[in-house]
Structure formats: structure tokens, C-alpha cells
């Protein structure tokens, strides 16, 4: 038993570390009703295309809060700069909505899609 533990404990520790370092790919997905980030950006895209700015404002607030929740989970497996870059994109989307500039917002939304797909991969 002692000999087994001697090999199993270091091996399991390394496996656990690898799992933490790759956890982002699973943990970026929604775990409740308040962190449905990707679906919310999809909804925002529709709002912007329909020029429904009041719904877009609500949606972007939801996105901001959802992103904070997701960051807490994925921060151990993703580099800080990448997280800050996505935060910047969300801020620019918010600014575009305030300015009711649908072209700028759509550009940022599609930039965000690209960032999301590369996040924690």
C-alpha cells in the first residue's frame, strides 16, 4: 500500500495540476442562468441588428456580470492579457451601444466571437 501511494500520489498530483491548467475549456461554458455569455452576445447581435438599443443596454449589462463570473473560474488556465483583452472588447461593445453605432458594435461582437473560440484552448 505504501509503495502504491508513493507512486500514485505524485502521479495524481501531476494529473490534478494538468486538469487545473486545462480547466478553462470546460469552465468557460455556462454553469447557471447568470453566466450564459455566448448566448447573450448572440442575443445582443440580434438586438443591434434590429436597432433595439434599450434591450441591447440590458443585454450588455448581463454580459459584463456574466464575464466577471466566468473570469473567476477560468483565471487559473488563461493568461491575464487575454482576459483583459476580452474585457476591453466588452467595454467597446458597451460604448458602441451608448453611441448607438450598430456598425462598430457588430465589428466588436464578431471580434469577440473569435476571442471566445480561442479562449482557454
Amino acid at each position: 500500500m505504501k509503495k502504491f501511494s508513493l507512486h500514485a500520489i505524485p502521479l495524481l498530483t501531476l494529473v490534478f495540476f494538468i486538469a487545473i491548467m486545462h480547466s478553462g475549456i470546460v469552465l468557460k461554458n455556462p454553469m447557471g442562468t447568470e453566466d450564459r455569455l455566448y448566448q447573450s452576445v448572440n442575443k445582443l447581435e440580434e438586438n443591434v441588428k434590429d436597432k433595439d438599443w434599450s434591450s441591447a443596454k440590458k443585454e450588455v449589462r448581463y454580459i459584463e456580470n456574466a464575464w466577471k463570473k466566468v473570469v473567476r473560474r477560468i483565471q487559473f488556465s488563461v493568461e491575464r492579457e487575454y482576459l483583459l483583452e476580452i474585457s476591453g472588447t466588452i467595454s467597446r461593445i458597451k460604448g458602441g451601444i451608448e453611441a448607438q453605432d450598430d456598425q462598430a458594435v457588430l465589428e466588436e461582437i464578431y471580434y469577440y466571437y473569435g476571442q471566445w473560440h480561442s479562449l482557454a484552448t
Binding site: 487559473f76 491575464r80 483583459l84
Partner: peptide, 12 residues
């Protein structure tokens, strides 16, 4: 946003 202290502790 990112909690640097906790991230560094985990990485340490």
C-alpha cells in the same frame, strides 16, 4: 477582475 494573488498562489 482577475484575482492576481489567488492565481499566483495556485501557480506557486
Amino acid at each position: 477582475m482577475i484575482d492576481e494573488t489567488i492565481v499566483v498562489i495556485v501557480r506557486v
